[in-house]
């Protein structure tokens, strides 16, 4: 009994001096978690800080939450957090940086129109670094929505006049490929003659496959026509013919789209390499 009383007194006094983790400590702890790569733990702590920070002590908290969501791959939540962060940002350059981060979330989700919508609201900056970054992101967004002329003009803002010709060459080469493998053109070729579209795209095996398949069905149709009559041939073979004839057309179109997307990836990587080199040459 005496022991119990003693413990009660001791802990009652201890409670007078003890205090919970302060909001600053939580914030620093969350930062440490983020730096060590524990994004989920950091996110929980940052959210706790945002909830208890009634005096707006940490104005960058929503940006931190957005960063944590971004690192965990939750891009939609990151967009929402960056949205709040951009509205409460203390200055224009910080707001621009947050909107660029938001645009990156849209890029990750291939929502290039949304990214463009955000990027076009950014005010022009006097800071050379920020101007370049905005141009770069806007160019990527235009590239994503397949408006290559706009993309080129935005990319050119980063380059000097004498080094922009390399960029022109890359875009011209890509334009050439796009015109050469235009999906509608390839589709029409396969409508005219099955397999022609695939052969034009360089997929010889698939082209021959399509010719052989549709040709065999046509031969079967002729044989049935000769043996039983036209109606029998139509009723028994038309559905198969339609299936593989239209299938071949779709296959040709898909081959053309794939060809263009491979070229797009190649061109984009070349552009990024060029941009990286140009930016590394520019004074910070």
């Amino acid at each position: 009994m005496k022991l119990k009383t003693a413990y009660t007194i001791i802990f009652s006094f201890y409670a007078l001096f003890a205090c919970a983790q302060t909001i600053e400590e939580t914030y620093h702890f969350a930062n440490r978690q983020f730096e060590t790569g524990n994004y989920q733990a950091a996110l929980t702590e940052f959210q706790r800080v945002a909830f208890f920070d009634s005096s707006n002590q940490f104005p960058d908290i929503y940006q931190k939450i957005g960063d944590s969501f971004f690192s965990t791959g939750e891009y939609n939540s990151a967009v929402r957090s960056y949205g709040i962060a951009s509205r409460i940002a203390l200055n224009d350059s910080l707001k621009s940086e947050i909107i660029l981060k938001k645009a990156m979330c849209h890029f990750k989700q291939e929502n290039y129109f949304f990214a463009l919508n955000d990027l076009l609201t950014l005010p022009p900056s006097k800071n050379n670094y920020l101007t370049n970054k905005i141009s770069l992101f806007t160019a990527v967004a235009w590239f994503g929505v397949e408006d290559y002329e706009q993309a080129l003009s935005e990319f050119k803002k980063i380059f000097s006049a004498d080094s922009a010709h390399k960029l022109d060459d890359l875009f011209k080469q890509f334009e050439k490929t796009r015109k050469r493998f235009r999906p509608e053109k390839i589709e029409t070729l396969s409508i005219i003659f099955p397999g022609l579209g695939q052969i034009y795209c360089g997929d010889l095996v698939s082209g021959i496959n399509s010719i052989a398949l549709v040709g065999s069905i046509a031969v079967v149709a002729i044989v049935i026509w000769q043996s039983y009559g036209l109606l029998d041939a139509f009723l028994s073979v038309s559905s198969w013919y339609y299936r593989y004839y239209t299938g071949g057309i779709k296959n040709a179109k898909a081959t053309a789209i794939e060809k263009i997307s491979v070229e797009k990836e190649k061109t984009y990587n070349e552009i990024i390499r060029l941009v990286e080199y140009t930016l590394s040459q520019q004074p910070q």
Binding site: L100, K108, N132, K133, L136, V140, E258, S261, E265, N269
Partner: peptide, 16 residues
């Protein structure tokens, strides 16, 4: 600063 690493793999072609 320019987030080049993030930008690099954006238009990856999905080959069938």
């Amino acid at each position: 600063d320019y987030k080049m690493d993030e930008l690099r793999g954006l238009f990856e072609a999905h080959q069938h």
